[in-house]
Computed example of a mutant assay.
Amino acid sequence: MIRKIGRPLRRIALIAVGLLAALILLYRFVDPPLTPLMLIRLVQGDGLRHSARPLAAIDRDLPRAVIAAEDNRFCRHWGIDWSAVGEALEDFDEKGRLRGASTITMQVARNLFLWPGGGFLRKAVEVPLAVAIDLAWPKWRIIEVYLNIAEWGPGTFGAEAAARLHFGKPAARLTRREAALLAAILPSPRHWSAGRPSAYIERRAGIIAGRIDKLGGWLDCLD
């Protein structure tokens, strides 16, 4: 009985792995049309504002601001920032609370293929997916896809839709302050606004904008 059940499960697992591998290779060249989170927001009634843009059509400060806010070592790691993982595990041992250690690549993997929310199971799937994406895509493509599928407001996905919603302009014309404000709201884009920032978001954006210059050569994968 166990063998009978095990064979179809292995077959399903192999098919799933093959499908994921094919999609990773496809999305290296083709912009993802939808993500699971986009579909969830549609069902929730938020609508969908999304228009993919190449990295060249997005102001250069936005990817830099996002890296400064979300993943300082983006240009140096291989999909997983093991230093951040180690720090998160130390915090968990001391405080009993697991804080995030997600890289931008891990967020791309999660947004493209997985479900929202936390938990060890999703992380266990997210890690190998992130490593595979980092092996298959150049860094500029990873940040390009991230900027085009990240959520920046209710039903608002991608830098172009975000720039038009919050500032009434295309993503190519963002200022550094506006780029930093967009990066600042990424942790909670349904509750924070870049166009009408609170004092906290203004302070956070100021820190992010200042960090861009400090990172210097750590952003060289975007050049």
Rank of each mutant, 00 (worst) to 15 (best):
174 L>V: 07
119 G>Y: 10
39 L>Q: 12
44 Q>S: 10
105 T>K: 02
67 I>V: 14
114 L>I: 12
104 I>D: 02
128 P>Y: 06
179 A>T: 08
158 G>S: 08
55 L>M: 09
66 V>L: 09
41 R>I: 09
59 D>E: 12
57 A>H: 09
98 L>W: 13
56 A>N: 05
135 L>W: 05
120 F>W: 14
172 A>L: 09
139 K>P: 00
158 G>P: 00
68 A>G: 02
74 F>V: 01
162 A>K: 00
101 A>S: 14
38 M>C: 09
143 I>K: 00
127 V>D: 04
75 C>H: 07
179 A>N: 09
44 Q>P: 01
175 T>H: 10
111 N>T: 14
52 A>P: 05
38 M>S: 07
99 R>D: 13
75 C>R: 04
51 S>W: 06
173 R>Q: 15
133 I>C: 04
121 L>W: 13
76 R>L: 15
48 L>M: 13
86 G>S: 14
141 R>N: 02
118 G>W: 11
108 V>M: 08
104 I>H: 02
95 K>Y: 14
143 I>A: 01
89 L>Q: 11
130 A>V: 05
50 H>L: 05
137 W>I: 00
181 L>Q: 01
85 V>Y: 10
59 D>C: 09
119 G>F: 08
63 P>D: 10
78 W>A: 15
134 D>N: 13
142 I>F: 04
62 L>P: 00
162 A>Q: 04
145 V>K: 00
83 S>P: 02
164 R>S: 12
49 R>K: 15
92 F>C: 13
59 D>H: 15
77 H>A: 02
138 P>L: 10
174 L>S: 05
142 I>L: 06
141 R>I: 03
176 R>H: 09
167 F>Y: 10
